[in-house]
């Protein structure tokens, strides 16, 4: 395991913790897309089914378990405990526009036509677009709380670090996974516009608001 991979996982974990702490402390999930969080819960569930079939390392098992827990607790806080603060009106992205193409593609383009492999592929494709309802919500309301932008920053950083990890692994182990790499590039591109706004506005102490 290389430094990019570890830092990528830490960024990913940090993003999820930032979101949980934000919701918990403010007792509100205003500005958070419940749909994106449901998609992430589906992503982890369909990807980590190998918890039951393969053992890689203690690290791998523990992290998968923690990621699953974070995702489910977040969904519970949004649709359960703090549902009164949930901005249903602006969380209006049509999920079928993501789920139908992603499902179709995972059946067409995978490494082997087996249930676990198709579900893994589905989770990779879905992860690359799962943030779109959140970005759509921000573009619709025209603003995001600073803490929400920190969440998005660390989530985007995780994707960028994983790209570096794959370049490293390709150079040192000659390993690459085409499905993961292509999806990883796609999702990192989605964050570029946001990264620009984050650096030019949020880091200079301004709130992220769109003209």
């Amino acid at each position: 395991m290389n430094i990019f991979r570890i830092l990528g996982d830490v960024s990913h974990l940090l993003a999820m913790i930032i979101l949980l702490v934000k919701i918990w402390r403010s007792k509100s999930c205003a500005g958070i897309s419940g749909k994106s969080q449901v998609l992430f819960a589906i992503v982890f569930t369909s990807r980590y089914l190998d918890l039951f079939t393969n053992f890689f390392s203690i690290y791998n098992t523990v992290m998968k378990f923690v990621f699953l827990m974070c995702a489910y607790i977040t969904v519970y806080l949004i649709y359960g405990k703090f549902r009164k603060t949930f901005d249903n009106e602006n969380d209006s992205f049509r999920l079928e526009f993501l789920l139908i193409p992603v499902t179709g593609l995972s059946f067409l383009e995978n490494q082997s036509f087996t249930p676990l492999e198709i579900l893994w592929t589905f989770s990779i494709y879905l992860e690359s677009v799962a943030i779109l309802p959140q970005l759509f919500m921000i573009s619709k309301t025209g603003e995001a709380e600073t803490i929400t932008t920190h969440y998005l920053f660390f989530l985007g950083l995780y994707h960028a670090l994983y790209l570096a990890n794959w370049i490293w692994r390709y150079q040192t182990e000659n390993y690459y996974d085409q499905i993961a790499v292509v999806s990883g590039v796609v999702q990192t591109i989605f964050y570029c516009d946001f990264f620009y706004l984050y650096v030019t506005k949020v880091l200079k102490g301004k709130k992220l608001s769109l003209p």
């Binding site: 393969n54 791998n60 998968k64 490494q111 994983y162 690459y176």
Partner: peptide, 10 residues
């Protein structure tokens, strides 16, 4: 490329 049993990444 990794197979189903070689996916150690998260």
């Amino acid at each position: 490329a990794g197979s189903a049993s070689g996916k150690d990444e998260l």
